[in-house]
Design a protein around this nucleic acid. Structure first.
Lengths: 216, 216
DNA sequence: CGCTGTACGGTACACCGTACGGCATGGTCC
DNA sequence: GGACCATGCCGTACGGTGTACCGTACAGCG
């Protein structure tokens, strides 16, 4: 009675994987139930046998993307080196599926695969000497900075972003914006690129170091 | 010949303001051209006389939201106090229209109204002794952190977010996630709230201070 | 064989953004 | 005054979306 009389032809994972492929290839708004069903050679409404609604599917897609995450596994080095490595891994993971960043903003994902890096980072921070609460806060800062960095870089190609910024800044009234007017090039350089990420990361790690050295 | 034979009944600003009201009241996806036109007592296609398409309208909405920004004007204090004040102003401005955060991610806004705070922050950083490039990078770090903080808080009520996190973390396999399992409460506390924002802000400012003290 | 629980998918509905073209208006010119 | 016409307005229509509803066809069981 509880045995299925017909076995499904697909699985949730297969559907989510196909959806992820579609999103990576053509962007988030190219993912419609009809298009996905067509690509799977299946009727549109069949998908609703696997997922309650599109939100349910999107959650599974984000999950699938988090699952292909890299090997955060290599350990070694002091806390600073470990955290830098984890921040880079997080950034790389996010940039591998840029379209999904805005989805992750809506509902944070808390699956084991996504929390592996968190576990390691928290371990490094505790080992460095922070309290549990300070470690959690420091990790959160690193996480938010990294996420913000990727989210803002995902708007377009680096050169395109920089070009727009240069144009807009150059046309500001110089008497009202003297500093920006003199710093157009420097501002444009921060809009994306490894050096900006590195700088902010070092800044945050310096902040942690300062807290560690401070007498408590 | 170039004189209009009929004067428009509305203005771009009025339409954008109404759209902003709709978004603030019911969320981003409640904003449709039909609903907006209905609320304005006007035919749907009339809106296309004011805006080329919906993207154009959305840009104007973001602009309108940035325009109602507060008085960042009060100066005084050292660079640390000034930057802290500006970061808080940015956060408050973003949280006043949470639905627009994801729009600003797609296309950064570079209007004078939005760049007023940037001008002041850059001024404070240069006055503190940073080079133009380091000042731009440091500002960018602060900006990205603040933006990430608001973007992630906008998912739901703080208590709701914390509750979900507590549940998910508590169900992790303890042998694989010993640190997280012991830090559930501390992790949950960082998901929103003033204290987390304050901590990350102080951490970034400490990082700037460390750079200032470092021999270059 | 017939029964029944299940996977499948066609059709339909409400809604979306927007292209097109007709209409009423009121200022300009003869 | 009358004709003209640029202009703002907007009804209709097209192709798309997510998904509710319901009929159908099949696999395993008695």
């Amino acid at each position: 009675m509880s045995t299925p009389n017909r076995t499904p032809a697909l699985s949730r994972d297969q559907v989510a994987e196909a959806a992820l492929g579609l999103v990576d290839a053509e962007g988030l708004n190219a993912l419609s139930m009809r298009r996905l069903a067509g690509r799977l050679g299946v009727g549109t409404m069949t998908l609703y046998g696997y997922f309650r609604d599109k939100d349910d599917l999107l959650a599974a897609v984000v999950d699938a993307a988090a699952g292909d995450s890299p090997e955060w596994e290599e350990r070694g080095g002091d806390w600073r080196a470990q955290l830098a490595r984890l921040a880079h891994a997080l950034r790389d993971g996010l940039e591998r599926h840029p379209s999904l960043v805005q989805l992750r903003l809506r509902r944070p994902i808390l699956t084991p695969a996504a929390l592996r890096g968190t576990e390691l980072a928290m371990g490094a921070l505790l080992e460095a000497g922070l309290s549990r609460l300070d470690a959690a806060r420091a990790f959160r800062s690193l996480f938010l900075y990294t996420f913000g960095f990727v989210a803002f870089s995902a708007g377009g190609s680096p050169d395109e972003l920089r070009g727009q910024a240069r144009g807009a800044l150059a046309h500001l009234p110089p008497e009202e914006f003297p500093v920006l007017h003199a710093s157009v090039e420097e501002m444009a350089r921060t809009l994306s690129g490894d050096d900006q990420f590195e700088f902010g990361l070092a800044q945050l790690l310096d902040g942690i170091a300062a807290r560690l050295e401070r007498p408590q």
